[in-house]
Design a protein around this nucleic acid. Structure first.
Length: 310
DNA sequence: TACACCAAGAGACTGTCAAC
DNA sequence: GTTGACAGTCTCTTGGTGTA
C-alpha cells in the first residue's frame, strides 16, 4: 500500500541503511518495517532494496524513487507548518478606511501586513464613515477602520484609537494668541468633516449653543481639501490635527485657544461582519489595534492581539 | 552474532448500516 | 448529519527460522 507512513519508512531505511535502525528510529519493530517496505514495493510494483546477508542496498529504482519520497515528506512538513502558522492568509482583503487613518498609521499597518502575510492582497477604499458603514454591511468591503462602532447585527467592533479634535486656523486670519470666544469663530466659515458625519453635527451644535444662529460650515470628505482651505485662510478648521505636525511646525496653521467646551474626540474602531471567513478581518483588525494604540500613545494594557514584531 | 523474513495471535482501525 | 454497534481488515508484536 502506498501511504505516507510506508514512504516515510522507505526514506528512513534508505537513510539509515537497515531495517533495524529504521525500526528504532520510528519506534517500531523490525518485522513491522519489513512489512511496510514489502507493502510499498507491492503497491509500487518495483523492488526498492536488494537484500542479502550483508544487509540491504537501494536498487536503481529505489535510488530514483527516494527523491520523490523526500519531496513528499517535505510537503507533509510544509503542510503541518502551514496549518500551525497564522501567516498563511491569502486572497484579497477589501479594506475601507477613514482618511484620518490614511494620514496616520495606515502605512505602518500595510508594512506589517506585507511582511507578516505576504500572500494577502489588499484593496483599499478611502471614504467617509457613513459610506464605509454602508459598504461593510452590504459586504462590499471586509473590514473598515472608521469612526465607530457600527451598531448593526452580526458586526464585530474593536476600539482602535482616539484622536482629539482641535480648532485650527491660518495666521492670515490674525486671531491673536489670547483665548477666543467660540462665538467669534462664527465670523468665518468653519471647515470640518462631511455634513453626514458626527463631528460635523457636534461642531454645529456647539456653535449654535455658543450663539451662532446659522453657522456657515464647509464640510468635506477630503481632509486635504479642509487643510488646504484652512491654510489659505478661507476659515477655521475643526479637525484632528494628529497628522498636521509639519503644517503646525512651519506655522502654516496654528492651534487656537478657544473658550468653549472641548470638542468630542474622534474615536476609531475596526469593524467587520461576523462569518466563517472573518478570520482574516479579525486578525488584521487586531494588528491594527496594536499599531493604532501605539501611534496614539494609548498604551497596550487592553490590547487583544499580540503586538507586531516592530 | 547480526540481519531480514515468516507465521500466528492480539489489538487497533475502518467502513457500513441502522437509529435518532 | 451524527452517533453507536458490528464485522472485516490491517498492523503490530512475539517467537522462530534461515543465511553468511
Amino acid at each position: 500500500m502506498i501511504d505516507l507512513r510506508n514512504i516515510e519508512t522507505f526514506f528512513w531505511v534508505a537513510r539509515l541503511g537497515g531495517f533495524r535502525a529504521a525500526a528504532e528510529k520510528l519506534n517500531a519493530t523490525q518485522p513491522a518495517i519489513s512489512q511496510r517496505i514489502a507493502s510499498l514495493e507491492s503497491g509500487l510494483g518495483v523492488r526498492l532494496f536488494e537484500r542479502d546477508a550483508r544487509g540491504i542496498k537501494l536498487t536503481a529504482k529505489g535510488h530514483e524513487l527516494l527523491s520523490h519520497a523526500e519531496r513528499m515528506l517535505q510537503m507533509r512538513t510544509d503542510m503541518q507548518q502551514a496549518a500551525r502558522a497564522q501567516n498563511v492568509m491569502s486572497g484579497t482583503l477589501r479594506l475601507g478606511v477613514a482618511e484620518t487613518i490614511v494620514h496616520t498609521w495606515l502605512s505602518r499597518l500595510m508594512e506589517y501586513m506585507h511582511e507578516a502575510y505576504p500572500a494577502l492582497m489588499v484593496e483599499i477604499q478611502v471614504d467617509t464613515t457613513p459610506a464605509l458603514k454602508s459598504l461593510l454591511t452590504s459586504h462590499q468591503i471586509d473590514l473598515a477602520f472608521l469612526m465607530g462602532p457600527v451598531d448593526e447585527p452580526r458586526v464585530d467592533n474593536i476600539h482602535l484609537c482616539r484622536y482629539p479634535l482641535a480648532w485650527l486656523a491660518s495666521p492670515q486670519l490674525k486671531l491673536g494668541r489670547e483665548p477666543i470666544p467660540l462665538k467669534r469663530l462664527g465670523q468665518w466659515p468653519v471647515l470640518t468633516y462631511s455634513s453626514i458625519t458626527e463631528p460635523h453635527r457636534a461642531v454645529r451644535r456647539m456653535l449654535v449653543e455658543a450663539g451662532v444662529a446659522t453657522p456657515r460650515m464647509y464640510g468635506s470628505s477630503a481632509l486635504s481639501v479642509i487643510v488646504r482651505m484652512a491654510m489659505d485662510g478661507i476659515g477655521t478648521a475643526a479637525i484632528a490635527p494628529v497628522f498636521l505636525g509639519r503644517e503646525l511646525a512651519q506655522g502654516e496653521l496654528r492651534q487656537l485657544d478657544v473658550r468653549a467646551p472641548d470638542l468630542p474626540p474622534l474615536s476609531f474602531t475596526a469593524s467587520w461582519m461576523q462569518g466563517p471567513d472573518s478570520h482574516v478581518a479579525r486578525t488584521i483588525a487586531q494588528a491594527a489595534q496594536v499599531i493604532a494604540r501605539d501611534h496614539a500613545g494609548e498604551g497596550a494594557s487592553e490590547m487583544v492581539a499580540s503586538p507586531p514584531a516592530r
